[in-house]
Every structure is written in C-alpha cells, then in structure tokens.
Design a protein around this nucleic acid. Sequence first.
DNA 1: CCGCATCCTCTTTGATACTG
DNA 2: CAGTATCAAAGAGGATGCGG
Lengths: 137, 137
Amino acid sequence: MDTNFPDLRQFGGAEAFLRVCKPRVVLEMFTSKWTALVMGALLDGPRRFSELRRALDGITQKMLSQTLRTLERDGLVTRTVFPTVPPRVDYELTALGRSATGILEAIGAWAGEHADAVIAARTTYDARAAEPPRPVT
Amino acid sequence: MDTNFPDLRQFGGAEAFLRVCKPRVVLEMFTSKWTALVMGALLDGPRRFSELRRALDGITQKMLSQTLRTLERDGLVTRTVFPTVPPRVDYELTALGRSATGILEAIGAWAGEHADAVIAARTTYDARAAEPPRPVT
DNA sequence: CCGCATCCTCTTTGATACTG
DNA sequence: CAGTATCAAAGAGGATGCGG
C-alpha cells in the first residue's frame, strides 16, 4: 500500500498531532451524542427550539441548548432571535452545515452495509470471552 | 426538502432510538481518541504492538492495548500471537477494517475543504463572545 | 418560551506499577 | 515484548430550579 501515513514524531508525538489534525476537528464535531440527531432534525428547514425539543423526544433542554450552541459556534447552524414575547428562536442549517450532512450520509451508507457485520463480530468476540477457561487438553 | 427524518417518538424517544441506530454504532467506533490514528498506522500492513507504540509516539500502553482490543472486537483488526520468546503479536486490518477507512477518508476530504471554515467560525464566535457588554447607544 | 446555573453521576483517559 | 491492574483526573451527560 501507499498511504502516506505521517511519522507522528515530527509533530512532537501523536498527542501533539491530534491537536492540529483537521480530520480530528471534524470527527469531534459529530462525536457528541446529539449532534447528528439535531442536524437531522434540521434537514427539512428552520425549526424553533421547542419544535426541536419535541422532535427529539427525550433530549434534555440543557443538551439541546448546548448542542445547538456548539453547532452555531462551528458555523453549521444559524440562530435567529425574534424580539417577540414570548421569545422565539429559529435554528437553521447553514450551507456549511448542509455540506456536512454529506458525511453523515456516508456514515449511514457504510452502516447500512456493514453495521450488522460489526455487531455480529462483537457477539462472537463476547461469546468467546465468556467461554470457560481453557482445558489443558 | 424531502429527507424522511423519522419521528423519534415511535421509537420511544431519541434516547431509545440512539440505542438501535446503526449509524450511531459506526459513529461510536471512531469516537475514541486513538481509534482513527491506530487504524491509520495499520494502513500499510501488519504491525507489531511495539511498532505501533513507537509510530504513535505519545500513546500509553494502556490506551493502545484498549483501542486495539476494541478494534478486534468490532472485527476491524485481527490479532495474531506468535508463540515465540520473547512474545510477538501482530495486528492487521481486516477487509471490514479497510472498508471502514473509507469513512475516515471521507471525513479527511471534507476536513480538507471545510475545516478551515469551521475553525474560522469558531474564532469569530469566540471573539464575539469576548466582546465588552453592549453599549446602550 | 428559551436557556442559564448548579450539582451530581458515569465514562473516558492517563500515570504508574506489576506479570507471563 | 506485550500486556493487565489500580488509582486518580477530566469531561460529557443528566436532573432540577431560576431568570429574562
């Protein structure tokens, strides 16, 4: 193979490399428990906070708020406040945000093809681990 | 838009949905800090434990061991023990593991195009958050 | 209605030391 | 060489109550 995997020592070790690794920045965008789900709920257009809360039945206010703030900070979602009373806040995917959903679709596609194999592998592995200690022959 | 985002209530809430959501299974495969890096280090072929430890300069024995065990459990990596002394253990990507690196490449590609935009958005957001309190004008 | 602040728990990661 | 065991630290996630 010819993969050009970098020698991490030139970055001062893997730890240092991770701090400047762009793919990792992206990876971390989606690793939060709710990020993908919130973006999914925004695919059809702008949504209010309470609409999202209802759509993601089970998410706490705190996590929804926190997730939306992170998405906003990363430029994936816009937050629009209407100065009405009671207050109304709309969230909407930006162009950047919509382009990022392509990654989620890629993951979904791979999951459709291979997730069962992963789950099966786990089952096999766990069964093996639970076996009685080796007989001495 | 026509995105078919599911109504999560039929699953008993988002939390319940997440437990059976295959894309999430895949997402969680890569959420560990070292997973992607270890797989990257295996792209060029089989590697011994100590080779990986050197390649990922900075990883602890424990985390390398743990990461490899998870990868093995998920069927992404094989572990081959040679009954020599001193012991020697080789790790190698399976076909499933190699196919999964496609996801990492997709993430890398998106990162190449958009990571700077994300980082810039963060900088802007953080600068705005650090501004002095609004003048009343 | 929107969302922040507090407190608490669980998981992940890391440092260190020991074994076949 | 290739791990496991143990302990401590850090961060994510969640429950609840208050404020604009």
